[in-house]
Design a protein around this nucleic acid. Structure first.
Ligand SMILES: [Mn+2]
Ligand SMILES: [Mn+2]
Ligand SMILES: [Mn+2]
Ligand SMILES: [Mn+2]
Lengths: 217, 217
DNA sequence: TAATATTTTTAGATTAGTCTAAAAAAGAAT
DNA sequence: ATTCTTTTTTAGACTAATCTAAAAATATTA
């Protein structure tokens, strides 16, 4: 039996492994989970006992195959529920994460299969993040950050890197929604801001914003 | 903050109050929750601290208005989710209770409102139990037990008293589903079994079965 | 390399929720 | 009214998940 808390730690470690390829520091886990270092050390020991991760003192933590498959399943559930909330219940994309944080822990294989079917087997969630299939495979989407695009290049807005409500609401306010075409008009040397054309309008976004927008060329 | 466990106890006490009008014995709570008497005493003390119930030693427990409104809200969520599972995800009525036991603890006012709307504001769940509205009001359905019906009386099957998977599957096997017309053909004096006509077929059900079927005359 | 700073672990405490075993209260029977 | 039985509460212990404070290991810098 895996507790909610354990699932949350597994998920955090899974995401952190992208940044810390050779073992995730216990401190990084603590920071991500918003707990103290001592708490994360304790939990990592428990996960290790349960063969969900590999841990050696002072060496950081890595998920085992078992732990990874659990983490991926939680992510699959999270993203499918986010789709459900947006597609079927008409929530906006900035409201769904918090609720999905709860729904992702509901345990029923059959429920998730049925939900997936009900939603028409979506490939991505409302923020453009890929939904792993039942086997845990993520389909790789090739996308680049708006900040990395050259002048005159254009593509489709396919995802966000930061999905905080504040950022999502800022995009809404500027009519920048998933699927729209974005063209780079100018890149300001001075502050790295990017002038873009979107839905017929010209908008200038900060480099911070441009570094959180994924484009498919 | 109310924990899952506290919500489950509130729900149990709510249901038990129908049987134990002048205070629910701590033992009855323990039995219903499948815990030991000492655990239920402990929990009832905690609920009492939080003003969710009124408790005096050896006097049994009663919900406060606050506790009752929490309990009713959990029941509302449970039953709406059961509707969702049956109506939208095509689950059968004997599979949904267990999953709804988990979903009933998801905390989001807005989610429940949207779900209610999505389902078309259902009045009853898949087992015929009433769904309280946002204010916590149950609409009273007048229904009688099949066992109490006289010969030649007929009505519509509107609910079950026992909603265990075993009983629900037994009903399925005999094509007795919610909404069908049932007519009492004969009542056997010897063992209280009841011969009924349902969907053109004649079926004889035991008194135990007849005491778990609600009919609207 | 030795001193200093940072990271990580350990020790000890706390809370929620559970248990077993024993004590106390209430209810029933003689 | 005593005694016996059943119900209820209390006492003490355990686990999961967290914390603070201190110790230990590792990393950085002079
Ligand atoms: Mn999310
Ligand atoms: Mn998402
Ligand atoms: Mn149910
Ligand atoms: Mn039900």
């Amino acid at each position: 039996m895996i507790t909610f808390s354990e699932e949350n730690y597994l998920k955090a470690i899974f995401h952190l492994e992208k940044l810390h390829v050779k073992g995730v520091p216990t401190n990084a886990v603590a920071e991500s989970m918003d707990t103290k270092a001592s708490s994360s050390t304790d939990m990592i020991k428990r996960l290790s006992e349960k063969k969900l991760c590999v841990y050696k003192k002072y060496q950081g933590v890595k998920l085992s195959a078992l732990g990874r498959s659990h983490a991926v399943n939680v992510i699959r559930k999270h993203r499918l529920w986010e789709c459900f909330l947006v597609e079927k219940l008409d929530f906006s994309w900035d409201e769904v994460h918090e609720i999905a944080e709860q729904l992702e822990h509901i345990e029923s294989e059959k429920l998730i299969d049925k939900l997936d079917e009900f939603l028409g087997y979506p490939k991505t969630d409302p923020h453009g993040d890929p939904i792993p299939d039942e086997q845990g495979n993520f389909s790789k989407i090739d996308k680049v950050l708006l900040l990395e695009c050259g002048v005159d290049e254009s593509g489709v807005f396919v995802g966000v890197r930061d999905s905080s409500p504040a950022f999502l609401q800022y995009l809404d306010k500027n009519n920048i929604s998933l699927g729209v075409k974005i063209k780079v008009l100018h890149k300001e040397e001075f502050d790295q801001s990017v002038q873009i054309e979107v839905e017929g309008n010209e908008v200038t976004v900060s480099s911070k914003t441009a570094s959180n927008i994924f484009i498919k060329l």
